[in-house]
């Protein structure tokens, strides 16, 4: 026998992958939107709105000047005092002053 069973298996697999790959390559050239999975929205992280009444600590950390400590304080404030009634209420959280509020106000929302 020229090839063993394993060698035949390997050859068949390599040829099959090459044919599938070549087919994919030419089909994609013809139809560029083919094989798209999930609409990848290229919204930069810095522009996404953050709901300060529902955001997790991880989401809050994406705000400028808000690190893990301030994020935790926001969540604790929410738990103790209920949801924020206005964006400016976030200044009541210890460590968030006027300057930090001005940096984050365009990205925070209440809904």
């Amino acid at each position: 026998m020229l090839f063993t069973k394993e060698e035949k298996l390997a050859i068949i697999f390599i040829i099959a992958c090459s044919l599938v790959g070549a087919g994919f390559f030419y089909y994609k050239r013809a139809q560029s939107s083919a094989f798209e999975i999930f609409a990848i929205k290229n919204i930069p992280e810095e522009q996404k709105q953050v709901n300060i009444n529902a955001a997790s600590i991880r989401e809050l950390i994406s705000l400028k000047r808000i690190g893990p400590v301030l994020a935790e304080r926001i969540v604790l404030y929410r738990e103790e005092n209920g949801p924020f009634q206005s964006a400016e209420d976030v200044k009541r959280v210890k460590g968030i002053g006027e300057h930090t509020y001005r940096l984050i106000k365009k990205r925070i929302t209440l809904e």
Partner: peptide, 13 residues
């Protein structure tokens, strides 16, 4: 690399 990337992409799809 292009051909096998294509086949891998198709199988992941």
């Amino acid at each position: 690399a292009v051909i096998f990337a294509g086949s891998t992409t198709f199988f992941i799809f």
